[in-house]
């Protein structure tokens, strides 16, 4: 039974494995070293994000304008709120985890069980929230036009609010009328078996141009960030020119190829970094569940030590730690 905190009869001897050089058990120390290497992997991703952002520093999407949704509150612009909630959930589950570890030190099986359970619930809520966040991001909200050069052009109008003129985005659906089309989605079954294409956008560029021309209030916004830290809005004349001469593709939502919020690199990094982190949370939940059942079965009670809970706790806190950084560099800075 005593596989991890074994008494091997070598205690006090310099060699043989009974020695604890840093007063930490073998398992705990190895978990720390794994965490160091995993931290380096994550920092590699985040630094690569920084590299790409510095490369396109004058046209990078503004996160506050991208992540504005909260479940059940449709149509309201609430930047940051939901991510802050997710952050809080993860910190909270970290707390229940450390409480479980503490209860383990006191050999209190009932408390360890409860706190492990709460930790699992917290992790599940977080992964679910992230799935929702992905779905919202993939679906998109306003739609945009991609130019020949790969730039994103978005639409909006100046609206007056209490004497303040503000640029507000307008969705394609609000000013473009879809006409009957001959073009159908090319699928594998209708041609060569190895060639197919993604879902066709609801509108064509020609339809968007028509809609833009018939609504004199609508202007085009480019990716370029001006001195005030806002995206540049073009004049009416320039707007029509840009769409007519350079418009190539209607983009709705985001995937690994196109991204209606701005440069497609932003979407790539979003999927990759939050995806990799979400995968860590998911595997953390799975490991937590295994440990949870071991606690219920009394494995650690019999073993006389809850060190396993401590080790999985280290991993779980690390996941929280990474999220703190992802939160800062993806949503705040």
């Amino acid at each position: 039974m005593d596989t991890t905190v074994a008494n091997t009869g070598t205690e006090g001897k310099a060699w043989g494995g009974g020695n604890k050089p840093l007063k930490a058990s073998y398992g705990k120390m190895m978990m720390w070293f794994f965490i160091v290497s995993d931290a380096l992997t994550f920092s590699g991703f985040l630094a690569a994000y920084g590299f790409s952002r510095f490369k396109f520093i004058d046209s990078w999407p503004i996160a506050d304008e991208v992540f504005t949704h909260v479940p059940f509150l449709h149509g309201q612009e609430l930047p940051m709120i939901y991510v802050a909630f997710m952050t809080f959930i993860l910190i909270m589950s970290s707390v229940t985890m450390v409480l479980a570890v503490d209860a383990g030190h006191h050999m209190n099986k009932a408390k360890v069980t409860i706190y492990m359970f709460l930790t699992i619930i917290g992790g599940a809520i977080f992964v679910g929230s992230q799935a929702w966040e992905w779905a919202t991001f993939i679906k998109g909200d306003y739609g945009a036009i991609q130019t020949k050069g790969g730039n994103i052009l978005q639409f909006g109008e100046y609206v007056e609010h209490d004497g303040e003129t503000k640029f507000e985005r307008i969705a394609l659906a609000d000013f473009v009328t879809a006409e009957a089309k001959d073009r159908t989605q090319h699928q594998r079954k209708s041609g060569l078996w190895f060639s197919s294409e993604g879902t066709l956008p609801t509108y064509t560029v020609a339809e968007v141009t028509k809609g833009l021309e018939s609504h004199s209030n609508i202007l085009v916004r480019t990716q370029i960030i001006n001195d005030e830290g806002e995206k540049t809005v073009l004049s009416r004349e320039e707007s029509i020119n840009q769409i007519k001469n350079n418009g190539k593709l209607v983009v709705e939502g985001a995937n690994l190829h196109v991204n209606e919020y701005g440069t497609s690199l932003f979407a790539d990094f979003f999927f990759f970094i939050t995806g990799f982190h979400g995968f860590h949370v998911f595997s953390g939940v799975v490991i937590n569940i295994i440990i949870f059942f071991n606690v219920i079965l009394g494995t650690y009670e019999r073993r006389g030590s809850y060190e396993m809970v401590e080790k999985v706790g280290l991993y779980w806190h690390f996941v929280d730690l990474v999220w703190v950084f992802v939160f800062t560099f993806f949503y705040l800075v």
């Binding site: 931290a39 920092s43 590699g44 630094a47 690569a48 920084g50 590299f51 952002r53 510095f54 520093i57």
Partner: peptide, 16 residues
């Protein structure tokens, strides 16, 4: 991590 961040951000600014 500091080393990595320095190298990559420096290079990113240069490419810009």
């Amino acid at each position: 991590i500091c080393y990595l961040i320095f190298i990559l951000l420096q290079e990113g600014g240069y490419v810009f």
